[in-house]
Protein backbone atom coordinates (compact mmCIF):
# COMPACT_ATOMS: atom_id res chain seq x y z
CA UNK A 1 0.00 0.00 0.00
CA UNK A 2 1.14 3.54 -0.69
CA UNK A 3 0.43 6.76 1.21
CA UNK A 4 -2.76 8.33 -0.07
CA UNK A 5 -3.02 11.17 2.43
CA UNK A 6 -0.31 12.69 4.56
CA UNK A 7 -0.70 15.44 7.16
CA UNK A 8 2.21 16.59 9.29
CA UNK A 9 2.33 19.05 12.15
CA UNK A 10 -1.26 20.07 11.54
CA UNK A 11 -2.34 23.05 13.60
CA UNK A 12 -5.78 24.61 13.54
CA UNK A 13 -6.68 27.59 15.64
CA UNK A 14 -10.11 29.21 15.69
CA UNK A 15 -10.46 32.85 16.73
CA UNK A 16 -7.63 35.10 17.73
CA UNK A 17 -6.10 36.78 20.74
CA UNK A 18 -7.37 35.66 24.11
CA UNK A 19 -10.38 34.00 22.49
CA UNK A 20 -8.18 31.79 20.29
CA UNK A 21 -8.89 28.09 20.55
CA UNK A 22 -6.27 25.67 19.28
CA UNK A 23 -8.12 22.51 18.21
CA UNK A 24 -5.31 20.70 16.43
CA UNK A 25 -1.86 20.91 17.97
CA UNK A 26 0.63 19.50 15.51
CA UNK A 27 -1.29 16.42 14.43
CA UNK A 28 0.40 14.05 12.00
CA UNK A 29 -1.30 11.18 10.20
CA UNK A 30 -0.80 9.09 7.11
CA UNK A 31 -3.57 7.14 5.41
CA UNK A 32 -2.58 4.35 3.08
CA UNK A 33 -4.61 3.67 -0.05
CA UNK A 34 -7.29 1.07 0.57
CA UNK A 35 -7.37 1.47 4.37
CA UNK A 36 -10.57 1.27 6.40
CA UNK A 37 -9.76 3.44 9.40
CA UNK A 38 -11.80 4.45 12.41
CA UNK A 39 -11.10 7.82 13.96
CA UNK A 40 -11.84 7.72 17.66
CA UNK A 41 -11.71 10.30 20.35
CA UNK A 42 -13.84 12.25 22.77
CA UNK A 43 -15.94 15.22 21.76
CA UNK A 44 -13.78 18.29 21.18
CA UNK A 45 -10.69 16.21 20.50
CA UNK A 46 -10.43 17.58 16.96
CA UNK A 47 -11.87 14.66 14.95
CA UNK A 48 -14.35 16.74 12.96
CA UNK A 49 -11.81 19.49 12.37
CA UNK A 50 -9.34 16.93 11.05
CA UNK A 51 -11.99 15.48 8.70
CA UNK A 52 -12.89 18.97 7.50
CA UNK A 53 -9.25 19.73 6.69
CA UNK A 54 -8.75 16.35 5.02
CA UNK A 55 -11.88 17.08 2.98
CA UNK A 56 -10.34 20.38 1.79
CA UNK A 57 -13.31 22.28 3.23
CA UNK A 58 -10.96 24.15 5.54
CA UNK A 59 -7.28 24.98 5.53
CA UNK A 60 -5.02 24.36 8.53
CA UNK A 61 -3.44 27.24 10.38
CA UNK A 62 -0.09 25.51 10.04
CA UNK A 63 1.31 22.22 8.89
CA UNK A 64 1.26 20.31 5.63
CA UNK A 65 -1.50 18.42 3.92
CA UNK A 66 -1.08 16.44 0.74
CA UNK A 67 -3.13 13.86 -1.07
CA UNK A 68 -2.17 11.91 -4.18
CA UNK A 69 1.02 13.94 -4.14
CA UNK A 70 -0.82 17.27 -4.40
CA UNK A 71 -0.02 20.01 -1.88
CA UNK A 72 -3.51 21.00 -0.75
CA UNK A 73 -2.42 23.81 1.56
CA UNK A 74 -1.11 25.86 -1.34
CA UNK A 75 -4.07 25.22 -3.67
CA UNK A 76 -6.68 27.91 -4.25
CA UNK A 77 -10.44 27.54 -3.76
CA UNK A 78 -11.14 26.66 -7.39
CA UNK A 79 -8.48 23.95 -7.46
CA UNK A 80 -9.62 22.57 -4.11
CA UNK A 81 -13.25 22.44 -5.28
CA UNK A 82 -12.29 20.39 -8.33
CA UNK A 83 -9.93 18.19 -6.31
CA UNK A 84 -12.65 17.52 -3.75
CA UNK A 85 -15.13 16.68 -6.46
CA UNK A 86 -12.81 14.22 -8.17
CA UNK A 87 -11.04 12.52 -5.27
CA UNK A 88 -13.00 12.89 -2.03
CA UNK A 89 -16.42 11.66 -0.96
CA UNK A 90 -18.33 12.74 2.14
CA UNK A 91 -20.83 10.97 4.37
CA UNK A 92 -22.26 13.17 7.12
CA UNK A 93 -23.97 12.20 10.35
CA UNK A 94 -27.29 13.67 9.27
CA UNK A 95 -27.01 12.40 5.65
CA UNK A 96 -27.30 15.98 4.38
CA UNK A 97 -29.10 15.12 1.17
CA UNK A 98 -30.67 17.79 -1.01
CA UNK A 99 -34.28 17.64 0.19
CA UNK A 100 -35.99 18.72 -3.03
CA UNK A 101 -34.32 16.05 -5.15
CA UNK A 102 -34.88 12.33 -5.62
CA UNK A 103 -32.47 9.66 -4.41
CA UNK A 104 -30.99 9.28 -7.90
CA UNK A 105 -30.63 13.05 -8.39
CA UNK A 106 -28.77 13.30 -5.11
CA UNK A 107 -26.43 10.47 -6.05
CA UNK A 108 -25.53 11.84 -9.49
CA UNK A 109 -25.05 15.41 -8.18
CA UNK A 110 -21.23 15.24 -7.82
CA UNK A 111 -20.85 14.16 -11.45
CA UNK A 112 -23.56 16.40 -12.86
CA UNK A 113 -22.22 19.52 -11.16
CA UNK A 114 -18.82 18.94 -12.77
CA UNK A 115 -20.14 18.02 -16.23
CA UNK A 116 -22.86 20.67 -16.27
CA UNK A 117 -25.67 18.17 -16.88
CA UNK A 118 -26.97 14.79 -15.86
CA UNK A 119 -25.57 12.46 -18.49
CA UNK A 120 -26.99 9.02 -19.24
CA UNK A 121 -23.73 7.47 -18.05
CA UNK A 122 -24.01 9.28 -14.73
CA UNK A 123 -27.59 8.14 -14.26
CA UNK A 124 -26.58 4.54 -15.04
CA UNK A 125 -23.79 4.72 -12.46
CA UNK A 126 -26.18 6.29 -9.94
CA UNK A 127 -28.75 3.51 -10.45
CA UNK A 128 -26.05 0.85 -10.03
CA UNK A 129 -24.88 2.41 -6.78
CA UNK A 130 -28.40 2.71 -5.40
CA UNK A 131 -29.10 -0.89 -6.38
CA UNK A 132 -25.94 -1.93 -4.58
CA UNK A 133 -27.16 -0.05 -1.50
CA UNK A 134 -30.39 -2.03 -1.67
CA UNK A 135 -32.39 0.97 -2.87
CA UNK A 136 -33.29 -0.13 -6.39
CA UNK A 137 -36.96 0.40 -5.61
CA UNK A 138 -36.36 3.86 -4.18
CA UNK A 139 -34.39 5.42 -7.02
CA UNK A 140 -36.97 8.05 -7.93
CA UNK A 141 -38.27 8.62 -4.44
CA UNK A 142 -37.95 12.10 -3.02
CA UNK A 143 -35.45 11.82 -0.19
CA UNK A 144 -38.06 13.14 2.22
CA UNK A 145 -39.94 9.84 1.76
CA UNK A 146 -36.97 7.66 2.79
CA UNK A 147 -36.16 6.31 6.24
CA UNK A 148 -33.08 7.44 8.13
CA UNK A 149 -31.13 4.31 7.18
CA UNK A 150 -32.16 4.63 3.54
CA UNK A 151 -31.09 8.27 3.48
CA UNK A 152 -27.70 7.39 4.86
CA UNK A 153 -27.27 4.68 2.22
CA UNK A 154 -28.14 7.25 -0.45
CA UNK A 155 -25.47 9.47 1.10
CA UNK A 156 -22.94 6.62 0.85
CA UNK A 157 -23.89 6.08 -2.78
CA UNK A 158 -23.45 9.82 -3.45
CA UNK A 159 -20.02 9.76 -1.79
CA UNK A 160 -18.97 6.96 -4.15
CA UNK A 161 -20.41 8.47 -7.33
CA UNK A 162 -17.17 9.91 -8.70
CA UNK A 163 -15.14 6.85 -7.63
CA UNK A 164 -13.12 8.87 -5.10
CA UNK A 165 -9.92 7.55 -3.63
CA UNK A 166 -10.93 8.76 -0.15
CA UNK A 167 -14.29 8.79 1.61
CA UNK A 168 -14.56 10.78 4.83
CA UNK A 169 -17.44 9.75 7.06
CA UNK A 170 -18.25 11.88 10.09
CA UNK A 171 -20.32 9.78 12.51
CA UNK A 172 -22.14 8.08 9.59
CA UNK A 173 -24.06 5.79 11.93
CA UNK A 174 -24.49 8.22 14.78
CA UNK A 175 -28.09 8.97 13.89
CA UNK A 176 -29.16 5.40 13.05
CA UNK A 177 -30.48 2.48 15.08
CA UNK A 178 -28.17 -0.50 15.54
CA UNK A 179 -29.58 -2.54 12.64
CA UNK A 180 -29.39 0.36 10.20
CA UNK A 181 -25.92 1.26 11.46
CA UNK A 182 -24.68 -2.27 10.87
CA UNK A 183 -26.20 -2.28 7.42
CA UNK A 184 -24.37 0.93 6.49
CA UNK A 185 -21.08 -0.35 7.92
CA UNK A 186 -21.47 -3.62 6.03
CA UNK A 187 -21.83 -1.66 2.79
CA UNK A 188 -18.79 0.48 3.58
CA UNK A 189 -16.70 -2.62 4.36
CA UNK A 190 -17.85 -4.28 1.16
CA UNK A 191 -16.94 -1.28 -1.00
CA UNK A 192 -13.59 -0.91 0.76
CA UNK A 193 -12.85 -4.57 0.13
CA UNK A 194 -14.14 -4.74 -3.45
CA UNK A 195 -13.05 -1.41 -4.82
CA UNK A 196 -10.15 -0.47 -2.58
CA UNK A 197 -11.69 2.87 -1.64
CA UNK A 198 -10.03 4.38 1.44
CA UNK A 199 -12.43 5.19 4.28
CA UNK A 200 -11.77 7.32 7.34
CA UNK A 201 -14.71 7.01 9.69
CA UNK A 202 -15.10 9.26 12.69
CA UNK A 203 -17.08 7.55 15.45
CA UNK A 204 -17.68 7.34 19.17
CA UNK A 205 -18.97 3.82 18.82
CA UNK A 206 -16.44 1.14 19.80
CA UNK A 207 -18.52 -1.50 18.03
CA UNK A 208 -18.39 0.43 14.77
CA UNK A 209 -14.67 1.10 15.25
CA UNK A 210 -14.01 -2.58 15.76
CA UNK A 211 -15.32 -3.24 12.25
CA UNK A 212 -12.44 -1.15 10.84
CA UNK A 213 -9.02 -2.68 10.31
CA UNK A 214 -7.24 0.35 11.79
CA UNK A 215 -8.15 2.64 14.67
CA UNK A 216 -6.65 6.06 15.16
CA UNK A 217 -7.29 7.81 18.45
CA UNK A 218 -7.20 11.58 18.63
CA UNK A 219 -6.97 13.42 21.88
CA UNK A 220 -6.33 17.06 22.63
CA UNK A 221 -5.48 17.85 19.03
CA UNK A 222 -2.91 15.13 18.38
CA UNK A 223 -2.92 11.43 17.52
CA UNK A 224 -2.59 9.54 20.73
CA UNK A 225 -2.90 6.01 19.54
Amino acid sequence: MSALVRVEGLVKTFGSGEAATRVLRGLSLTLQAGELTALLGPSGSGKSTLLTILGTLMKPTAGSHSMLGTDLVAADDRALTLFRNLHIGFVFQFHNLLPDFTALENVVFPTAVREGRETAAARTRGRELLARMGLAERIDFPTANLSGGQKQRVAVARALMNRPELVLADEPTGNLDRAAAMQVMALISEINRDEGTTFLISTHDEKIASLCRRQVVVGDGVVTG
Binding site: L57, R78, R84, N85, N96, V113, R114
Partner: peptide, 16 residues
Protein backbone atom coordinates in the same frame (compact mmCIF):
# COMPACT_ATOMS: atom_id res chain seq x y z
CA UNK B 1 -27.59 27.69 3.44
CA UNK B 2 -27.15 24.05 4.50
CA UNK B 3 -27.91 22.84 0.97
CA UNK B 4 -25.48 25.35 -0.48
CA UNK B 5 -22.88 24.00 1.95
CA UNK B 6 -23.60 20.44 0.80
CA UNK B 7 -23.29 21.44 -2.85
CA UNK B 8 -19.99 23.14 -2.14
CA UNK B 9 -18.76 20.04 -0.29
CA UNK B 10 -19.77 17.87 -3.25
CA UNK B 11 -17.64 19.96 -5.60
CA UNK B 12 -19.93 22.78 -6.72
CA UNK B 13 -17.86 25.90 -7.35
CA UNK B 14 -18.83 29.38 -6.22
CA UNK B 15 -19.67 30.23 -9.84
CA UNK B 16 -22.17 27.39 -10.01
Amino acid sequence: RPEIGIMRAMGAGRGF
